[in-house]
Design a protein around this nucleic acid. Structure first.
Lengths: 201, 201
DNA sequence: TCGCCTCTATGACAGTCGTCATAGTACGGG
DNA sequence: CCCGTACTATGACGACTGTCATAGAGGCGA
């Protein structure tokens, strides 16, 4: 969410759109501003995104979903011993670290797109569902890999991402990471209790 | 959230602003549109809200916070026997019922204001924190009344509202109430386990 | 050299936004 | 009757927005 890749102008614009989405919603992600933030020529917008702002926002949302799913895999790989609470703590920690290091400027771009467009712009709503699905799918896969029964894993993934999104909102409003640490601490035991310990049978 | 009070035009405009905020964020809550939705004269806007749109949005957010807190008290009073899981289920059910009856048009106005303004407009950010505080305070009070230890009640209230907000986002994106019912079902046992049963000591 | 394709540059258009200035109505007390 | 106060009406202004039309670079193959 922080490192701009050294790719071409098109990817830079998608990335910048996501970043501006995070800050102030779709209204704050103006086309001219996206181009400026990406240090990309304004004239390229209509070339790379003939679908206009709608396409740009949708791609930004899709990118964010894939990014989140990728992060889950990385967190999983970095855990000394994989537990659900450990994974959730890592997901939460990413946000607390950003907020403590760089301030509470940004939220989740998928949430922003959902809030601003889910009623008026069908395609953006679909992009948001796809992003959420990719994210929850990655978390659910990680949970099943830890021994959580398959039907339960999906529910817990929804719970994890839901409470994370809500905590992000409250943390940003209060300029305080405590909502994030709170949900992590409260949810930890519940998550770990869902793994079927083979010693139990 | 659904019944417009028969009050004066000023209150109607605040109410309408909240309702439009719910649908498409602050950008969708234009001044002219608020007046039209409230069936209030456009000329009254600058009279009742000399602080401009910022004031209008802030009052809408404050109204939403007080409304949410009031609802918690009502849910509590309507429970046959008050349990944390029962309260949470009632809070969630309000949203599932709205979505099943009226479609997924609206989200939480406080979330919308947070997403769109928390960086640029300090006063709106403060209004959002106040709304969240009022809401979590009401929930925490209800929990302590059920026998949840005081320091735990605040944390659980944050968890409840956080996961509710996140589930609202996902439900709206997917046009499916399942995220809401899922978090309610998954969180129920955890919540009820937090009441200090006096038979346990 | 020519033609072609990818990409960029720039100005203009129509629309919407929040805000303001100004004038007008309604009404209640003096 | 008159004046002040509360509220409404309306048009205009400037600052945006997303989109488009048009034209210009730059490279690459033939």
């Amino acid at each position: 969410m922080t490192v701009p890749p050294e790719r071409g102008p098109r990817e830079r614009m998608v990335f910048s759109a996501a970043q501006l989405l995070r800050r102030g919603g779709v209204a704050a992600a103006g086309m001219r501003e996206v181009a400026a933030h990406a240090e990309a020529p304004r004239g390229s917008l209509q070339h790379y995104f003939p679908g206009g702002k709608e396409q740009l926002v949708n791609e930004a949302v899709g990118w964010a979903g894939r990014y989140a799913a990728r992060r889950v895999a990385r967190f999983l790989a970095a855990l000394p011993e994989p537990t659900p609470s450990g994974l959730f703590a890592a997901m939460v920690r990413q946000w607390t670290q950003e907020y403590e290091a760089a301030g509470f400027a940004g939220g989740c771009p998928v949430a922003a797109a959902t809030v601003d467009c889910s009623q008026n712009t069908e395609s953006t709503r679909e992009a948001a569902t796809a992003a959420f699905d990719a994210w929850t799918g990655a978390v659910a896969d990680a949970l099943t890999g830890m021994g959580v029964p398959r039907e339960r894993a999906g529910s817990l993934a929804t719970l994890m991402i839901g409470s994370l999104e809500g905590a992000i909102l409250m943390a940003r409003a209060r300029r305080d990471v405590r909502p994030l640490t709170t949900v992590s601490a409260e949810l930890g035991p519940l998550l770990d209790a869902a793994v079927e310990s083979r010693s139990q049978h």
